[in-house]
Simulated assay, not measured.
Amino acid sequence: MPCALRTALFWDLVLGVLGTVAFLIDLGADLWAASQYVLSGHYLWAALVLALLGLASVALQLFSWFWLRADPAGLHAAQPTGRWLALLHFLQLGYLYRCLQGLRQGLLVWRQEAPSQFDLAYADFLALDISMLRLFETFLETTPQLTLVLAIVLQSGQAEYYQLVGICSSFVGISWALLDYHRALRTCLPSKPLLGLGSSVIYFLWNLLLLWPRVLAVALFSALFPRYVALHFMGLWLVLLFWVWLQGTNFMPGSYSEWLYRATVATILYFSWFNVAEGHTRGRATIHLLFLLGDSVLMVVAWGTQSSWLPTGVPLQTLLLAGLVCFFLGLALRLAYYRWLHPASHWEPDRVDGSLGARPLELHQLPENRRMNQLARNFFPKCRGETALPGKGEVNGVL
């Protein structure tokens, strides 16, 4: 095995281990926070933490189960029988099982002197599904939990040490999930270079900086108007769900499971941009950005009509200024990324997914993650005949 390939496989394995450990730490932190709320007598806060955790977990298990049922027969030769898999998902262990399965396959490939093309493609197949599930978990559980913790801190006027740790780890985890997902999409396009270190850092930073103002706006609204935040979320969520439905998504294997995907995407769109339709996305991304910006401005107006100070004595104008600085800095970094750091895009549909370059076997002989291939078509422009110059393509991907 070439040294470069072995090094790449090693780092993929390390990142897989770190991702699994981070998931377990995040789960433990949520359960710890819930127990602390119960001990301090804040039963509603504990119930909200557990409710968000439970709903996200159920959604992840459903996605994992639907995908396994839709995968070609015999693809997952080493997995347990159908009944055991159903039991694992019923016990909310399906996602963790997938993480362990991906680590097992990655270790198997890394230890082989000359891994087969099938083993390499199968490792990519598993990694792509895990990355997608991690993104879903991020916006169904981590981001709402972060918003809830920020609202509790702003409302109570004090922050416990476990809350501060949770806030910091959540921001890093969310940005990491976005970066990991973006890198995973590129493995579906062998001719599209992977993100380099500098590009990865900039991509990580602008996602972090653009997400912070939105989370802060919702958290402040929740702290000042706790009785109305659910109505606000449901109202915007229904509008976003209708928008996703209008774009005619066809991601899941069945009509009922497709609505689960649309509902999840609508939740992501409440906080960030996510492309679900093929074609030029600059216009849709701009409309979504202006929509969220307008909604955040309305929340700012609502703050000004009720109060200008937080329980901590911090003026709202200070937080508003910090949010504006982060927003414009993140927007500038994003524009700089797509202008100078975005690798060239070149679509070659006759190649299968995988970050290891073109493979000589026929398409039907290798595992092909059609789910992520479809999203890759949506997220990256199709260039025919020549490679697009950096900065000339559409601004696609997750915001």
Score class of each variant (00 low, 15 high):
residue 83 R to S: 15
residue 278 E to T: 01
residue 189 L to V: 10
residue 27 L to I: 02
residue 211 L to N: 07
residue 53 L to A: 10
residue 284 R to Y: 11
residue 352 V to S: 03
residue 181 Y to R: 15
residue 286 T to S: 11
residue 344 A to R: 15
residue 365 Q to P: 01
residue 246 L to W: 08
residue 354 G to D: 04
residue 281 T to I: 05
residue 8 A to E: 13
residue 340 W to H: 11
residue 122 Y to I: 00
residue 65 W to E: 12
residue 82 G to C: 05
residue 156 S to C: 04
residue 384 R to N: 03
residue 197 L to T: 06
residue 264 T to H: 10
residue 83 R to I: 14
residue 24 L to R: 10
residue 80 P to M: 05
residue 63 F to E: 12
residue 215 V to Y: 13
residue 191 S to E: 06
residue 305 T to P: 00
residue 251 F to R: 07
residue 250 N to G: 12
residue 26 D to L: 06
residue 234 M to S: 12
residue 106 G to D: 14
residue 164 L to C: 14
residue 366 L to C: 03
residue 253 P to G: 12
residue 32 W to T: 12
residue 60 L to V: 02
residue 239 V to H: 00
residue 246 L to F: 02
residue 84 W to I: 13
residue 186 R to L: 12
residue 66 F to M: 14
residue 320 L to N: 10
residue 333 L to H: 15
residue 347 W to N: 00
residue 352 V to Q: 03
residue 82 G to F: 04
residue 250 N to K: 11
residue 305 T to Y: 12
residue 346 H to A: 02
residue 48 L to R: 14
residue 75 L to M: 09
residue 265 V to T: 04
residue 315 P to A: 03
residue 173 G to Q: 12
residue 116 S to H: 10
residue 359 R to L: 09
residue 239 V to Q: 01
residue 228 Y to C: 02
residue 184 A to T: 10
residue 180 D to V: 03
residue 143 T to Y: 15
residue 88 L to S: 13
residue 380 F to K: 15
residue 13 L to M: 10
residue 35 S to Y: 11
residue 244 V to A: 10
